[in-house]
Amino acid sequence: MRIPLKKSGYEIIKAEVVKITPMTATEKLYEIRLKNGENLDHDPGQFVEVSIFGAGEAPISVCSSPTNQDTFELCIRKVGRMTSVLHNLKVGDEIGIRGPFGVGFPVNLLKGRDMIFIAGGLGIAPLRSLINYVLDERRDFGKVDILLGCKTPDKMLFGSEVAVWAERMDVNFCCTVDKSDPEWKGNVGLITTLIPGVNFNPDNTFAVVCGPPEMYIYVIQELLKKGMPESRIYVSLERHMKCGMGRCGHCQIHQYYCCMDGPVFPYDKVKDLEGAI
C-alpha cells in the first residue's frame, strides 16, 4: 500500500536562482525566489536546507534580512560535493528549499539595545541577516559596532556592502585581516585585537559572534574581560543538520539539537557543554 504524504517535512518548495554574484575565489552569493509566490518568512539567523535532487541537501544559513521580502540570499562556499554542485548553478535554474529551520536571533529582545557584531570569515553570512535587519530598522537599536575579520583581503566577503557600512555615520565599523597584501591599508591581526578598542556599556549591550569554531573562545574571552555578561553574548553554531527536525542526530550538542534549539544560542546556555564551542 502506497500512502502519499503532503506534509512529511521532507517535501521541498521549488525555488529559482534569480541572481548569482561571485564574491571570492570560493564564495558566491545566490539570490533565490520561492516559486510558490510566498516569501521565506525567516528570522535572522535561521537556516534552510538547499536541495538538488540527485546531489542531496545542505544546510545553509540565510544571509539576507527578512525585511527584504521578495527574495532571499544564500552565501555558499565551495567546500564539498554538494556545494560544488551548487556552484555550477546558473541564473534561472530550479532548486529545492526546505525550511526555514531553527531558532534565529532574538530580534525583539535586542531592540533598544546597543549591538556589537563580531564576524570571522564566512561567519559574516548568518550575521549579515541580522546586521541588515538592524540597519533597516536602525531607529529601534542603540549604538551599532561591527567588527569584521578574515584571513586575507581577497577573502573579504560582501566587499561593496562592507564599504557602505564603513561609510555610514550610524555604524562603527572596524575590519582586520590575518595576513595583509601590498594594497591593504587597514588593520592586520586577529579579530580579538579589535575588541579592546570598542567602547561599550556592558549593561545595555548585546554581542553577536559568528565565525570558525576556533574563533569563539578567544573572542568571548575578550568580551568577558570587558564586563559583558555571558547571557548577552549570542553565538551561531555550525553543524551538519541532515533532517532539520531534531532527529537525525548529526547536529546534536549534548541535550540540544542545533537544528531545533539553535543554531543561535546565548553563550551561557552552551558554555559548559564540552564540544559545543
Binding site: 500500500m1 502519499p4 503532503k6 530550479e94
Partner: peptide, 11 residues
Amino acid sequence: GQNMQAFVEIE
C-alpha cells in the same frame, strides 16, 4: 524541474 512525491509504502 525539481518534482517529487513523498510517500510511505506499508501493508
